[in-house]
């Protein structure tokens, strides 16, 4: 009976609530750190790849080139197609950042309810991509959906 009363006491309940709250905070914090690290790693690899392939200049890392307000999302992106090379699509998002999207044989390309092939994609098409990052700062696409052009 005493144990039952102790368990039901306000102090115990408050302590339990604080513990649960702390646990939730820790889990959320860990998830935030994980997502942040993924974005930072991808952004770094993107920067390394950009300098190697486009700028040709000295490699200074992302800190010298990127505005510090954004890190790139490695598992998804959206933008307008600016170039199609073999199995690589280059898109430009709203911030003007260019990203390489690698299209594999098992990549699903869809527009409305129709399945498309890579050859059906054109310059200036707007697409949304889901994929996973590789070690060159590119996105290996799993799904590409062609969307209507946004209103000006």
């Amino acid at each position: 009976m005493e144990l039952e009363q102790a368990v039901k006491s306000k102090k115990i309940k408050l302590g339990a609530a604080l513990l649960i709250g702390a646990l939730i905070l820790i889990i959320v914090f860990a998830a935030g750190v994980f997502v942040g690290l993924e974005k930072a790693k991808f952004s770094y690899r993107w920067g390394e790849n950009y300098f190697r392939n486009f700028a040709g200049g000295p490699r200074g890392g992302p800190g010298q080139f990127f505005p510090d307000r954004n890190y790139f999302n490695p598992h998804g992106s959206d933008g307008q197609i600016i170039k199609i090379e073999a199995t690589t699509i280059i898109i430009k998002d709203e911030t003007g950042t260019e990203k390489n999207i690698i299209v594999a044989a098992d990549t699903a390309i869809r527009k409305d309810r129709i399945d498309l092939k890579l050859d059906d994609l054109k310059i200036n098409d707007n697409i949304v991509v889901i994929g996973s990052p590789d070690d060159k700062g590119q996105i290996q696409a799993k799904l590409i959906r062609v969307i209507p052009s946004p209103l000006p």
């Binding site: 998830a31 997502v35 993924e38 974005k39 999302n73 490695p74 598992h75 998804g76 992106s77 959206d78 998002d93 699903a108 869809r110 949304v128 889901i130 994929g131 996973s132 799993k142 799904l143 959906r145 969307i147």
Partner: peptide
């Protein structure tokens, strides 16, 4: 792009369910 990615769950649910980990991460990012 969060809204666009979220919209994919309605239009391409079957494909997304096979790549759920990437999709959830793309939403979180």
């Amino acid at each position: 792009g969060f809204l666009l990615l979220l919209h994919l769950s309605a239009t391409d649910f079957k494909i997304i369910s096979t790549h759920l980990f990437d999709y959830v991460l793309s939403l979180a990012e």
